[in-house]
């Protein structure tokens, strides 16, 4: 499970039905409405007049807190600081009303507009509704990391490899205990001597044929023609040996290469463990 970084850092809030109904009730005072809020209203079956102007999310100004007022009010109230905020939050959960079903969210700019609108409503109609009462019962969706699930194919392969590895480890561990497990062809002396022998024979063959080639050039030609100078005999011998050596080298390399291929494919195909697998229950965690 891997988390990816947050793409959308906006705080979202799912509005309650009560909030939407309130807007519906007092929509005669609305002259302009944020675009997103209008969309939310429409998808929940509320009608919006076409004459109402739609606002972009950038056009809503941020109101600043009157800090002096805040401090003065708090001084006046003089609430003891040692309150229990935990209890407060718990009570919020219990009076939660049923949220609307559709996945529509209000963003911060919509809430700012709502605040402004409610202020107007209070002035004009004398209603006693505040935003904090309304959003108390709304669900707040904080920005969250998206979680990517691991690819199941990869997971399956990893699992298989892990099992294989564990099986092998287990067999290695229990090799001493059960003599039937002991048979591994690569471990026996005979196998190794055999492999060494075949290679040694190939090398020895090479040396012999080169030596024979030299002897033919050095002695054979002298015996046939006679009276050849020593230096020329040497050159002829070396030349013959060289020709045979190159040809022999070609075949030797070819053979060794084939052998190597055969060994590596042998290793792949015959896993010694497999022979005993029928009797054994594979080790698993």
């Amino acid at each position: 499970m891997t988390k990816i970084s947050i793409a959308d850092t906006r705080v979202r809030m799912r509005p309650t039905l009560r909030l939407l109904q309130l807007i519906e009730e007092h929509k005669d005072t609305i002259t302009e409405i944020p675009e997103n809020l209008a969309k939310v209203l429409k998808t929940n079956g509320f009608h919006i007049e076409n004459s109402i102007e739609l606002l972009g999310s950038d056009s809503i100004n941020r109101e600043h807190i009157d800090l002096k007022l805040l401090r003065r009010v708090e001084e006046l109230l003089d609430v003891p600081k040692t309150n229990s905020p935990k209890a407060n939050h718990d009570s919020e959960g219990t009076k939660e009303t049923k949220p609307i079903a559709t996945e529509n969210f209000l963003y911060l700019s919509d809430l700012r507009w709502l605040k402004w609108w409610l202020t107007q409503l209070r002035e004009k109609k004398g209603l006693d509704i505040f935003l904090h009462d309304l959003i108390d019962t709304c669900h707040l969706h904080l920005p969250m990391n998206e979680v990517i699930e691991r690819n199941p194919e990869l997971e399956a392969r990893c699992q298989r490899l892990r099992e294989q590895q564990q099986n092998k480890e287990y067999l290695d561990m229990t090799k001493n205990v059960d003599s039937t497990l002991k048979y591994v062809p690569e471990d026996t002396l005979a196998y190794q001597v055999k492999a060494m022998n075949s290679q040694m024979i190939a090398v020895l063959q090479f040396i012999f044929s080169v030596a024979a080639g030299f002897v033919f050039g050095f002695l054979g030609l002298e015996l046939i023609f006679g009276g050849i100078e020593f230096g020329l005999r040497l050159v002829l011998g070396i030349f013959c040996a060289l020709v045979i050596g190159v040809a022999e080298m070609y075949f030797l390399l070819k053979k060794l290469n084939e052998e190597e291929k055969a060994i590596s494919s042998l290793k792949k195909s015959t896993e010694p463990v497999k022979k005993n697998e029928k009797m054994l229950k594979p080790h698993s965690e």
């Binding site: 009157d66 809430l111 700012r112 605040k115 202020t119 935003l131 904090h132 959003i135």
Partner: peptide, 9 residues
Amino acid sequence: GNLLDLLYL
């Protein structure tokens, strides 16, 4: 109420 609204925002 006003202050609370502002604080929430």
